[in-house]
């Protein structure tokens, strides 16, 4: 019989096997490359566009060619009082505008990209993970030796670490492109911004990862799990939009609760540095992840293998 406390050790064993399997299968490489290429491509595209806009701006003001000085004009603009006022009006909150303007533009771009794109990438890469094992019957070898709960949590932990690695690679790629293309590149603020937002995007993606694993546990095949995972992403987004709309229109407590049950509502708080906003958002995301996983497990416990 397993000694007491084996469940925690089982979770670790499953998670460690998940990482090794991701390395052997080159899945880790594929996910890492995906984030790396996205980080490289998107930041290169962003800086090219920035360069073009700056060039046009410099040209229209008659200041000569701006093609060699990507970021300089933006840096000046970023510091100007007029732009700060415009930003405050755009964001609707002076404190938040101040916070955003304290972050380098490339950092903000990465934050937007990571917060927007990671849930989709998680749905694409994590949904087959359990469904494959169930379809092949490999789950039977494991579930003779550990509980379904330990197996699922171990899979979640393994995938969460892989995701952290992939986001770190994405941030690294973005930073590298910035260092190469920005004439006004400063290492410390960029590194801090990229690391902070990579971590926040990871936190934000955890409930989506849990949702992906729920689809993977309860559906009969990996392709169907991915399809339903993507559909659930769209459905929850629509639900969030409806909740926001009805809440704003005084739609009542139900819509508040609906919005609270979705990770999207926490996204806005992740832009802040204020612990009073950041910590509750992080805790809510953690609770949502646990709740989604628990819901999936309730269904999975009843499932035939």
């Amino acid at each position: 019989m397993n000694p007491p406390g084996a469940r925690g050790r089982d979770i670790w064993t499953v998670a460690a096997f998940e990482w090794r399997d991701a390395l052997h299968s080159r899945r880790a490489l594929a996910v890492g490359l995906l984030f790396l290429i996205l980080g490289l491509g998107a930041s290169w595209g962003f800086l090219r566009t920035l360069n073009r806009i700056e060039g046009q701006l410099v040209e229209s003001l008659g200041l000569g060619s701006g093609s060699e000085t990507t970021g300089n004009t933006t840096a000046i603009l970023w510091e100007s009082e007029v732009f700060r006022q415009i930003m405050t009006r755009l964001v609707g909150d002076r404190a938040l505008a101040q916070r955003l303007l304290s972050v380098p533009p490339l950092g903000l771009f990465f934050a937007w990209l990571a917060l927007s794109g990671t849930p989709l990438l998680v749905m694409l890469t994590a949904t087959p993970r359990i469904a494959e094992d169930l379809q092949q019957g490999a789950a039977r070898y494991v579930l003779l030796r550990t509980t379904r709960t330990a197996w699922i949590i171990g899979k979640f932990a393994g995938q969460a670490v892989l995701l952290a690695g992939a986001l770190a690679l994405g941030a690294l790629a973005t930073g590298a492109v910035g260092a190469l293309m920005l004439t006004s590149f400063e290492f410390a603020p960029h590194a801090a911004a990229l690391a902070q937002y990579a971590f926040r995007a990871w936190l934000y993606a955890l409930p989506f990862l849990a949702l992906a694993l729920v689809c993977s546990q309860v559906l009969p095949g990996p392709h169907l799990a991915t399809a339903v995972g993507l559909a659930s992403l769209i459905a929850t987004r629509i639900l969030h939009a409806l909740a926001q709309r009805y809440t704003a229109a005084g739609g009542g407590r139900v819509w508040d609760l609906v919005d609270l049950a979705l990770p999207y509502a926490q996204r806005g708080y992740l832009w802040w540095n204020d612990p009073a906003r950041l910590i509750p958002a992080a805790l809510t995301l953690g609770v949502l992840s646990a709740a989604y996983l628990a819901g999936g497990l309730l269904l999975f416990e009843r499932r035939s293998l």
Binding site: M1, N2, A6, R7, F17, R20, D21, H24, S25, D133, Q136, G137, A138, R140, Y141, L143, L144, R145, T146, T147
Partner: peptide, 23 residues
């Protein structure tokens, strides 16, 4: 129950395949 029976019961399932990439 895996908590009680892990290691005490072995099963050769009819149509299970091991994870393909693991050694």
């Amino acid at each position: 129950d895996a908590r009680r029976h892990a290691g005490r019961v072995g099963v050769l399932p009819q149509d299970a395949r091991p994870p393909p990439h693991a050694r």
